[in-house]
Design a protein around this nucleic acid. Structure first.
Lengths: 203, 203
DNA sequence: ACCTGAACACCGTTCAAGT
DNA sequence: ACCTGAACACCGTTCAAGT
């Protein structure tokens, strides 16, 4: 359990994020990061105990960008703002973003985001015992949507193979054939958020 | 674009799934799979073009298990059955399951699952143009929940560090302190599904 | 039709040493 | 305080060859 240096941590994370953005997660090796900052791979181990901790640092970076900028506005505005910010970050860093789904966000930045959502839900009138669950419901959906969109789980299935999908054991696909094409994911995301708002505050 | 052999594909996928289940995704190497079925690594390339296609095969395996067994029951029952089956599969194969979020499910099994959900939503009275969106909303949440649960995104954040989280810039955490502990994820999932049902069929 | 051997260009990480 | 060199035990994959 050696003590880690912190001096060049930001520089290292910058380099790692750049590599992932430019060439994907598979290209993000300790050796590539080291080369980018002009150092031997082993030098990195003075700043991060191993590659996994470096990835945690990257997740921390993304969380910083999710933190709500303007604390003003209605609770609806603030929830929407976090949701759209999440989706924006996913598009900026598609390779690293999915890691958010795999690591508990107990960093100060992560807590700040969750706390902002808690506050919005409290203001919305969600009963206190329900607030943490609703927060998990909403953020699980938002993260899942952003990951799906950015990794082609949505688009891959909806373009060419869509027509062929109306096969023998897919009767509902045939019925819905004319509605299977999607070209406006912004609109879909907005409609989803509106639906979730109805869970938060029944009309 | 060579033609692939199929004879031993199931055997190979069995071995790969077993390795991932027992020792995690990082241990799932072509070399490990080969050794397990008593063959040279290169022999695998006669059955799968590369490791990525082998992983696709693994995703196909999981999709098979999601296909709804009993087509009977109300639409509510059938939706719930797919949701709980998804969560069960996640727990059986925690290492491989997250791959479902990254690959479009255009295989016959994947289409079958989606079609079953389409049918349920149509019966529920969801307007045809809305059905594909609601399907994506629900399955994104269900997949996201299962991945989060199985990878510790939920539990890690909710146990020890919870108390400390009520720091200076986390006022809502302090207010909600007594509700931050969760020990029954089945109950949480059930409550989430009930809320989603209210989106599908407004009461 | 199915499999192997040797090789290439990579990985993460440990250890001991160097300034 | 910070970095390097050499080494270890791995990867995925190509190519040519073997039965």
């Amino acid at each position: 359990m050696r003590k880690l240096k912190t001096s060049r941590q930001p520089e290292i994370l910058d380099a790692a994020l750049a590599i992932a953005d430019e060439r994907g997660l598979d290209a993000l090796s300790m050796r590539a990061v080291a080369e980018r900052i002009g150092v031997t791979p082993m030098a990195l181990y003075g700043y991060f105990r191993n590659k996994d901790e470096l990835l945690d640092g990257l997740v921390g970076r993304l969380l910083t960008q999710l933190a709500p900028a303007e604390p003003g506005g209605s609770w609806q505005d603030r929830l929407a703002s976090v949701a759209w910010a999440t989706r924006r970050v996913a598009k900026e860093h598609p390779a690293v973003f999915p890691l958010l789904l795999f690591r508990a966000s107990v960093t100060p930045d992560g807590v700040r985001v969750v706390d902002a959502i808690y506050q919005a839900l409290l203001e919305a009138g969600v009963p206190e015992p329900e607030v943490p669950r609703i927060e998990r419901l909403v953020s699980t959906f938002v993260l899942g949507f952003a990951v799906s969109e950015v990794n082609g789980r949505f688009s891959g299935a909806s373009n060419e193979s869509r027509t062929r999908r109306g096969g023998p054991d897919a009767p509902a696909h045939r019925v819905l054939a004319e509605h299977l094409m999607v070209d406006d994911w912004d609109a879909e995301f907005a409609a989803d958020l509106a639906d979730l708002m109805r869970i938060i505050r029944p009309v």
